[in-house]
């Protein structure tokens, strides 16, 4: 018997990626690692949209469009985030979050 892949399996992948992303966002100490964690979360979202569209509502393409827009916007965000991280690097020589604590009160 061939194992079948259902919506639920994709959703489990999505939630695992989301959880890894959130965990990484709170525990990592490097700005680039934080960025990677957030990307993981955004990709979990894209998987969700694509799966819902493909399995539950195959007549409309709305979910696919949501994924496409999500990918494009995530790329724009990453570009800006990396530019700012480079600026931080130029100012303090590394990107460890432990030393990015000038602003506090």
């Amino acid at each position: 018997m061939e194992p079948e892949v259902h919506v639920i399996h994709y959703l489990i992948i999505g939630i695992v990626m989301m959880a890894c992303g959130i965990y990484g966002f709170f525990t990592r100490k490097n700005l680039l690692a934080l960025l990677i964690s957030v990307e993981l979360m955004l990709n979990a979202v894209n998987i969700n949209f694509a799966v819902f569209c493909r399995y539950l509502f195959p007549d409309a393409l709305e979910g696919h469009f949501f994924s496409l827009f999500g990918i494009a916007i995530a790329a724009a965000e990453t570009a800006v985030a990396i530019a700012i991280i480079i600026n931080v690097y130029r100012n303090i020589g590394h990107v460890q979050t432990d030393d990015i604590t000038d602003l506090k009160g």
Partner: peptide, 30 residues
Amino acid sequence: HHSAEAGAKFILNSMFSSALMLYGLSFIYG
């Protein structure tokens, strides 16, 4: 440096929050 630090904090938090929001929206769509 303060400006860059503030920018880094803002963009990472903003990406994190929009990822959470989109995850919620994906279930509404689903």
